[in-house]
């Protein structure tokens, strides 16, 4: 797939995304039935869950493209990894924020050290470190290799953290508040499904856009380097000619 194809797909996807977002807003805030135990606040669920899902999808993309980068050493996997990591970090941030806002009216507290919340927070931290290693690496090429290793280890860590917190909770005396599982009726499930699809499409749109940006940036850097080298060669050649003439 060339850049042109990707750009074309992107320009088609953008209106789809916007229409989808409007549809989600309508379905989540208006069409979806009232949840009887939590009240209207439960409507946050229809955006909170898809955002968390997108975060997970994005980090899965990071995981796969990190492995492919280490095996194939083709730059495009690195571009994909960094794009997906950035989007995944954004989605995790939004998921945490919307979760905190949802937690306050439903459980009465902002935060609980529940397995899902804890592993999301740690996932957030791992990928902050991932982007930092990229930014602070001593050489550009090394940074992507180091980051790929973190992308793999970090992804493997998330389920381990989840289960360790599950066990930790079962033993700890529990506060009564706890994110329960909602009973989804048919129409609620439909809203959730629609919303998840829309958010996933939006995620892929943003990733591909970020991918093209990363591609252009690194290709430009290569061009700049060759230009500078050419310039230097020309200067050296000129000096040599001058010297020869002086003799």
């Amino acid at each position: 797939m060339t850049t042109k194809h990707l750009e074309k797909i992107n320009s088609l996807l953008l209106p789809v995304c916007f229409a989808g977002v409007l549809l989600v807003m309508y379905m989540a805030l208006g069409w979806a039935p009232l949840e009887t135990t939590e009240g209207h606040v439960q409507r946050i669920f229809y955006v909170h869950v898809p955002v968390s899902w997108s975060a997970f999808v994005a980090f899965f993309v990071v995981f796969v493209s990190s492995i492919l980068f280490l095996i194939k050493r083709s730059e495009k996997w690195d571009w994909l990894a960094v794009s997906a990591a950035e989007l995944g970090l954004l989605m995790t941030t939004l998921s945490l924020i919307s979760g905190i806002i949802w937690g306050r009216p439903t459980w009465g507290v902002w935060w609980v050290w529940d397995p899902r919340l804890t592993s999301t927070l740690l996932m957030w931290m791992i990928y902050v470190a991932y982007l930092m290693v990229r930014a602070y690496s001593s050489e550009a090429g090394r940074g992507s290799r180091m980051a790929a290793v973190i992308g793999i280890i970090g992804f493997a860590d998330v389920p381990v953290v989840y289960y360790s917190v599950v066990w930790w909770q079962n033993i700890h005396p529990q506060p009564l508040i706890r994110p329960g599982n909602l009973e989804l009726t048919g129409s609620m499930a439909l809203v959730l499904l629609t919303s998840t699809i829309v958010f996933t499409i939006f995620l892929f749109y943003l990733i591909s856009r970020r991918f093209l940006l990363e591609k252009a940036t690194s290709e430009l850097a290569v061009m700049k380097r060759t230009l500078r080298e050419e310039e230097q060669d020309a200067r050296i050649a000129k000096i040599k000619i001058d010297r020869a003439e002086n003799k």
Partner: peptide, 10 residues
């Protein structure tokens, strides 16, 4: 520590 601590939490 930024890299290690989140991973060794379990």
């Amino acid at each position: 520590p930024l890299l290690m601590f989140p991973v060794v939490v379990p």
